[in-house]
Nucleic acid binder design. Structure first.
Length: 414
RNA sequence: CGGGGUGUUGUGUAAUGGUAGCACGAACGCUUUGGGAGCGUUUAGUCUGGGUUCGAAUCCCAGCACCCCGACCA
């Protein structure tokens, strides 16, 4: 991608609105644009990051046996009346269509996936299975805040699992905890993310949140000093001891919830009459679990965990480009020619590269913008470097740059 | 939803009742070599609707919007 063609502007001026670091950096570096409170456009750079996050999650869900589907955002009121959530879910967006007919805008999809499952589950032979989707969710938050960390419209992965027994659900649930940790590790926030016990609702003692520690977080979690499992505020109020190891020594941290998983058990299979015939001929309710990750929130969380005073430092796995190639202004035509050749060669071997081909921009500004955008590798071509048949390679996360022969660079990447 | 704050060119800001100014951006020209370049010219703004006043960005009322604190948060 040629930077001269890139649809987004870098903004030098820091916003006066006191939002989160991620909100400020993502907006100024041209990753997102705020349309209104809690609603954002993802610009080309941000959209690339979002797609990378999506693909990491998709891969992991598929490995966990999830089959990808896409359910509707627009949902019938009737289903929400059945579960009681039409009236008792505060964040539910309701809209009115023609003839004053009312609909829900999906904040989550149990009201769709349960009746869907009912059409496809008859026998114990049809179980277990899991389906997931990556889709825009709507929640009428009373207060959107912190940029893309808490929004009214956001991208979420939600997976639903269906089982014959509680034991089978328990087994799958434990497996998903491992899968989730792998996701967060691949997203570059594995170290900061804690499994957190939360209230489980009616049918199980606990649910689990995945909380990433950051000052921008709006939740308080208590990390057990012994086993490093955490509990949220709710649980802290109920129990003095760690539910995992019984220790009573905790460290309080601010955190943002990047994922959560629930044992729904029969909470939704009962209202939707979701049953199966077991081996013994008896009809039994299907046992369900659900597993969510907020993708757009994860993107903000990744930034909160990876930045410095110059800008964002994207983990390689989600970076919008692998390489930021910069040609330094020069009268020597060979500089541009060399940079162009490297750009083409990198493209040829499938490396995603943003090439700063802008002729009018000075080196300083290009470097400053590159640091703000935060692509993991920066390759600079200038008079100085081509005099040695080399380019300068610098990692965004590191201080020092090194000269690398162009031939060697291409060999190492090929 | 309760409380608080703020709305001035694309962005960041100044002007506290009396000529809407500055910086960044953008455009043009000339100049310019590696850490947000220089000179010159130009561009563009008082959230909306009422009111007070000779005169309103400024004071009052209403609305809208955004931000913050809290509450809420399968």
């Amino acid at each position: 991608m040629l930077q001269s063609q890139l649809f987004c502007k870098i903004n030098k001026n820091k916003s006066a609105e006191v939002e989160s670091v991620s909100a400020d950096l993502l907006a100024r570096a041209g990753f997102v644009d705020q349309l209104m409170a809690g609603v954002f456009t993802f610009l080309p750079l941000g959209f690339r990051v979002l797609k990378n996050i999506e693909n990491i999650i998709r891969k992991n869900m598929a490995e966990a046996g999830g089959q990808e589907i896409l359910m509707p955002v627009l949902q019938p009121k009737e289903n929400w009346l059945k579960t009681g959530r039409w009236s008792n879910m505060d964040v539910l967006f309701k809209i009115r269509g023609s003839g004053d007919k009312e609909y829900a805008m999906g904040p989550t999809h149990e009201e769709v996936v349960s009746p869907l499952a009912k059409k496809n589950i008859f026998s114990y032979r049809d179980l277990p299975f899991s389906v997931f989707q990556i889709q825009t969710k709507f929640r009428d938050e009373l207060r959107a805040k912190s940029g893309i960390l808490r929004t009214r419209e956001f991208l979420m992965k939600d997976l639903y699992s269906f089982h014959t027994t509680q034991e089978d659900l328990d087994k799958y649930y434990d497996k998903m905890i491992k899968v989730y940790f792998n996701v967060f590790k691949e997203l570059g926030i594995g170290k900061e993310t804690y499994l957190t016990y939360a209230s489980g609702g009616t049918f199980s003692r606990y649910s689990h949140e995945f909380q990433m520690v950051t000052d921008a977080g709006e939740d308080l979690i208590y990390i057990c000093n012994k086993c490093k499992t955490a509990i949220n505020k709710e649980i802290k109020a109920e129990t003095p001891a760690c539910p995992n190891c019984s220790s009573d020594s905790f460290e309080e941290k601010k955190a943002v919830e990047v994922g959560n998983i629930f044992k729904l058990a029969t909470k939704f299979s009962l209202p939707f009459d979701l049953k199966f015939k077991d081996k013994d001929g008896a009809e039994k309710p299907v046992i369900m679990g659900c597993y969510g990750i907020g993708l757009s929130r994860a993107m903000g969380a990744i930034v909160e965990a990876n930045y410095d005073e110059r800008g964002i430092i994207w983990p390689k796995s989600v970076a919008p480009f692998a390489v930021h190639l910069i040609a330094i202004k020069s009268e020597n035509k060979k500089v541009i020619a060399t940079a162009q050749k490297i750009y083409q060669d990198l493209n040829k071997i499938g490396i995603k590269v943003l090439y700063d081909d802008r002729e009018e921009k000075f080196a300083g500004e290009k470097f400053a913008e590159a640091d703000m955008i935060g692509i993991p590798f920066r390759i600079v071509v200038s008079e100085k470097t081509i005099a040695k048949n080399s380019v300068e390679v610098k990692e965004r996360s590191k201080k020092e740059a090194k000269l690398v022969k162009i031939k060697k660079l291409m060999q190492s990447l090929a």
